Simulated scan of single mutants.
Amino acid sequence: MENDAVEARLSAVYPELPPGERAIVRVLLDDYPFAALGSLRALAERAGVSPPTASRLFDRLGFGGFADFQAAVRDGARERSRLHEFVARSPGPRSPAASPEAGSSGGSSRAGASELRRAAEDLRSGLDGTLAAVAEPLFEAGAALLAEAGAVWALGGPLSELAAEYLIRQLASLRPGAQRVPDSAQARARTVLDLGAADVVVAYDFRRYSPDTARFVHAARARGARLVLVTDAWESPLAAQAEVLIRLPREAAGPIAPLAHEIAVTELLLVATAARLVPAQRLADLDALTQTL
C-alpha cells in the first residue's frame, strides 16, 4: 500500500470513527507521515487517548497492528505539497517545436490542455460539493455575529490568511471595526487586551493547523470573544471553541489547494451579512470619498 493510499484511507474512514479514533486520525493527518513514525504511546498521548484506543484504529484499518501500519507508511514515505503532487503528475513543459508559435499542436500541447480541463473539472466539482455541504443556517448564524459584533478580527494560516484578508477588505466596506489580526506577537497582545464579549474572531484553520492561530484564538476566547471558524473535514483543534463552525468537505481540496472554496464560502458569508446591515449609505459615502482621495 502506497503512502498516499494510506493517507487517503485515513481520510475516508474518518467520518465513521468513534471520537477517540478520530483524534488519532487528526494527529496523523496533521503531521503526515511523521506522526506515524514514533511510538504508539507517543501518538496516543498527542491525541489525548489511551494506547488501546489507538491500537483499535489500526485493527479497524486492516493492519496487523501499529508496526504494520508504520511499515506501510515508511514504504512510500514522502513529503509533498498538493502543488507538488499536481505538478508531478502533469505533463512536462512543451518543447519549442510543439508551441503554438511554431505552428504545431503537438502531443504535449494536447496533454497540457487535457490536464487543464481535468483540473477545471476537479475545481468545479469541489466547489459544488463545498456549497452543497455548508447549510444556509450556518451562513445566517455567522452573518448575525459579523453584523452585530462590536469589532471583527480575522486571521488564517499561510494560505488561508488570503481568505481572511478578503473577508476584512469586503466587510470593512459594510461596517466599521473590521480588521486583520496583526502578525507580530506584541501587536497581537495589544489586540487581545482590548477584546471582549461583544467582539468576534473569524479564523480560517486548515491542515496543517496553525499554532499561531490557535494561540491567538485561545487568548481571545479567554477574554470572552466569540469564534467563527472555517476549517476542513478533519476539523481544526479549535472546533470545540467555535460558536459557528463551517466545515469544508474533504472533496473540496481541488487540484492544488482549497483557497477558491474558502473564498466562495466567504462570499456567501458576506452576502448574508450585507443583507442584515443594509449598508447602502455607507457604500455610497465610501465611493464618494474614494473619488476625492
Results as ranks from 00 to 15, higher is better:
residue 215 R to N: 11
residue 105 S to W: 11
residue 193 L to F: 13
residue 182 P to M: 07
residue 247 R to K: 15
residue 205 D to N: 12
residue 263 I to E: 06
residue 37 L to A: 03
residue 24 I to H: 11
residue 26 R to I: 00
residue 28 L to E: 08
residue 214 A to D: 14
residue 28 L to G: 09
residue 140 E to D: 15
residue 159 L to F: 06
residue 99 S to V: 00
residue 41 R to L: 11
residue 6 V to S: 08
residue 95 S to V: 11
residue 115 E to C: 12
residue 152 V to Y: 11
residue 53 T to D: 04
residue 265 V to L: 05
residue 95 S to Q: 11
residue 260 A to Q: 00
residue 218 H to L: 08
residue 129 G to L: 06
residue 143 A to V: 03
residue 148 E to A: 15
residue 39 S to N: 12
residue 10 L to Y: 04
residue 12 A to R: 00
residue 265 V to T: 05
residue 142 G to S: 06
residue 110 R to I: 01
residue 176 P to L: 11
residue 288 A to R: 15
residue 242 A to K: 09
residue 206 F to C: 03
residue 192 V to R: 14
residue 35 A to N: 14
residue 210 S to Y: 01
residue 126 G to D: 06
residue 92 G to Q: 05
residue 80 R to Q: 10
residue 206 F to G: 08
residue 175 R to L: 01
residue 105 S to T: 08
residue 86 F to Q: 11
residue 91 P to S: 08
residue 283 L to S: 12
residue 267 E to I: 09
residue 245 L to F: 15
residue 23 A to W: 03
residue 51 P to D: 07
residue 136 E to C: 09
residue 59 D to K: 13
residue 286 L to R: 15
residue 196 G to W: 14
residue 200 V to N: 07
residue 26 R to Y: 03
residue 289 L to A: 13
residue 40 L to Y: 08
residue 264 A to S: 14
residue 206 F to R: 10
residue 73 V to Y: 04
residue 39 S to C: 03
residue 103 G to P: 01
residue 291 Q to C: 02
residue 46 R to A: 11
residue 168 I to F: 04
residue 100 P to K: 11
residue 268 L to I: 01
residue 21 E to D: 09
residue 186 Q to G: 12
residue 52 P to L: 02
residue 162 L to S: 14
residue 174 L to Q: 06
residue 60 R to L: 10
residue 81 S to E: 01
residue 273 T to N: 03
residue 265 V to M: 02
residue 15 P to V: 08
residue 39 S to A: 13
residue 268 L to E: 14
residue 285 D to M: 04
residue 182 P to D: 03
residue 173 S to G: 14
residue 230 V to I: 02
residue 196 G to F: 10
residue 142 G to T: 04
residue 230 V to T: 07
residue 96 P to E: 14
residue 181 V to I: 07
residue 114 S to E: 15
residue 155 L to W: 05
residue 212 D to L: 13
residue 57 L to H: 12
residue 11 S to F: 00
residue 185 A to D: 12
residue 292 T to D: 02
residue 210 S to E: 01
residue 249 P to E: 13
residue 181 V to N: 08
residue 159 L to Y: 09
residue 44 A to H: 07
residue 144 A to V: 10
residue 90 S to E: 03
residue 19 P to Y: 05
residue 44 A to R: 06
residue 51 P to R: 06
residue 43 L to M: 12
residue 266 T to G: 05
residue 177 G to P: 06
residue 153 W to G: 01
residue 120 A to I: 00
residue 178 A to S: 08
residue 228 V to I: 15
residue 24 I to M: 00
residue 291 Q to F: 09
residue 272 A to S: 14
residue 205 D to I: 05
residue 234 W to G: 09
residue 54 A to M: 05
residue 133 A to C: 09
residue 86 F to S: 09
residue 290 T to S: 14
residue 91 P to R: 11
residue 153 W to A: 11
residue 246 I to S: 08
residue 134 V to L: 00
residue 246 I to Q: 02
residue 173 S to W: 10
residue 171 L to W: 12
residue 256 I to M: 09
residue 254 G to T: 02
residue 226 R to G: 13
residue 94 R to D: 13
residue 30 D to P: 07
residue 175 R to G: 02
residue 274 A to W: 10
residue 156 G to F: 09
residue 60 R to T: 04
residue 101 E to R: 14
residue 156 G to V: 08
residue 175 R to D: 04
residue 249 P to R: 13
residue 104 S to F: 09
residue 182 P to G: 13
residue 99 S to G: 03
residue 91 P to E: 12
residue 225 A to Q: 08
residue 86 F to V: 02
residue 277 L to R: 07
residue 280 A to V: 08
residue 118 R to Y: 04
residue 78 R to P: 01
